[in-house]
């Protein structure tokens, strides 16, 4: 999602990053003050390998997508499919913010033309051209709905979520 929306910060190395999380989750910590969000916003968009791994505050996004619990060894990652993942992708802050950024990128690159937007969106997110059917479904959608919902939909397609 970071790459598609052009938001990825490719910086390498340095200390772990604490990203903003829902206030309720920070309050679940025994000492909430220890969660100090990185002040430089650009730090939040680095690769997830740079995010802090805190056993008692698992980032909801990472937890929903089977990040190991960090308490015991993980011989093999689980790969599950369930509703909280869908909820996170549809309603979570991260996916919505990046969908918005992706929409802005497409707006700029395709200069507002729906056909071009769909073409460019598919190439950036799914690595291929849309089929005729996909293109017409998408253009239909864009005639009535905001672009950001389209980019969010791209992030939720099987073609984006799975490597084929």
């Amino acid at each position: 999602m970071l790459v598609s929306s052009g938001q990825l910060n490719p910086k390498v190395g340095g200390p772990s990053v604490m990203v903003p999380v829902d206030r309720e989750l920070v309050r679940l910590l025994y000492k909430p003050a220890q969660w100090e969000v990185a002040r430089d916003g650009a730090e939040h968009h680095r690769r997830s390998i740079y995010l802090i791994a805190k056993r008692n505050l698992r980032l909801p996004f990472m937890e929903a997508f089977d990040q190991p619990a960090l308490l015991t060894s993980c011989g093999r990652r689980e790969s599950s499919t369930h509703a909280p993942q869908a909820l996170e992708m549809l309603n979570g802050k991260l996916s919505n913010e990046l969908a918005e950024a992706f929409a802005q990128r497409l707006e700029k690159e395709a200069r507002g033309e729906h056909g071009l937007i769909v073409e460019r969106g598919y190439w950036l997110a799914l690595g291929r051209a849309p089929t005729f059917r996909e293109r017409s479904l998408a253009i239909d959608f864009l005639s009535a709905q905001p672009l950001k919902e389209f980019t969010l939909a791209l992030f939720n397609l099987n073609g984006f979520l799975y490597v084929q």
Partner: peptide, 14 residues
């Protein structure tokens, strides 16, 4: 409507 789009686009290649 977004969910319907996701479903339709998925089905187009499923």
């Amino acid at each position: 409507r977004t969910l319907d789009l996701i479903r339709d686009l998925n089905r187009a290649t499923l």
